[in-house]
Simulated assay, not measured.
Amino acid sequence: MKQPTESPRACVIGHITVRDAEKWAEYRRQVPATLSAWGGELVFRGRKISVMSGEHAHAETVVLQFPDARSLDGWFQSPAYQALIPLREQAADVVLIGYES
C-alpha cells in the first residue's frame, strides 16, 4: 500500500533594515495575528552580530514557518497581511524569500 506523501514545509526568511523603529514595532506587533489562520509560526527573530563570509547588508532576520507552500502563499496574499504591507514599507527595507524544507 502506498503511503501518502506529505507536502514539504515552507519557510519565509526576511532580511530587514529598519528605518523607523516606532513604525517597525507597530508592524511587528500586528503580524502574529495574520499567521494563525495559515498555520504559520515565528521560528526565529534576531539581529546580525557578524558576517562570516560574503556580504549581507541587512541588520535583522526573521524566519516564519508554514505547513506547506500553499499556506505560505495564502498568508502572504491574505487581506490581513496585505493590509500591513504599506506600514512595513514605511518602516523598513525588507526582502522576503520563500523556501520549501
Rank of each mutant, 00 (worst) to 15 (best):
M1D: 02
Q3C: 14
Q3N: 14
Q3T: 15
T5V: 14
T5Q: 11
S7P: 02
P8V: 02
A10S: 05
C11F: 12
C11G: 07
V12I: 10
I13Y: 11
T17W: 02
V18M: 10
V18R: 07
R19K: 13
R19Y: 06
D20F: 00
A21K: 02
A21Y: 00
K23F: 10
K23Q: 13
W24V: 01
W24G: 03
A25E: 09
E26G: 07
R28L: 04
R28P: 00
R28H: 02
R29I: 01
A33Q: 15
A33F: 12
T34K: 04
T34Y: 10
T34E: 05
L35I: 00
L35Y: 01
W38N: 01
G39M: 06
G39C: 04
G40Q: 08
G40I: 07
E41P: 10
L42N: 09
V43H: 04
F44I: 00
F44G: 01
R45T: 06
G46L: 03
G46W: 08
R47T: 13
V51E: 15
M52V: 15
M52W: 12
M52Q: 13
S53E: 14
G54S: 13
E55Q: 10
E55C: 04
H56S: 04
H58T: 15
H58R: 15
A59H: 11
A59R: 12
E60N: 14
E60D: 15
E60W: 13
E60F: 13
T61R: 10
V62E: 09
V63N: 01
L64R: 10
Q65G: 05
D68F: 08
L72F: 08
D73C: 03
G74D: 12
W75R: 00
F76I: 00
Q77W: 09
S78D: 10
A80N: 09
Y81I: 09
Q82P: 03
A83I: 05
L84I: 15
P86D: 13
R88G: 04
E89I: 02
E89T: 05
E89H: 09
Q90G: 05
A91K: 03
A92I: 07
A92Y: 06
D93V: 14
V95L: 15
I97W: 06
G98A: 14
Y99C: 09
Y99L: 11
E100K: 11
E100P: 06
E100G: 05
S101W: 08
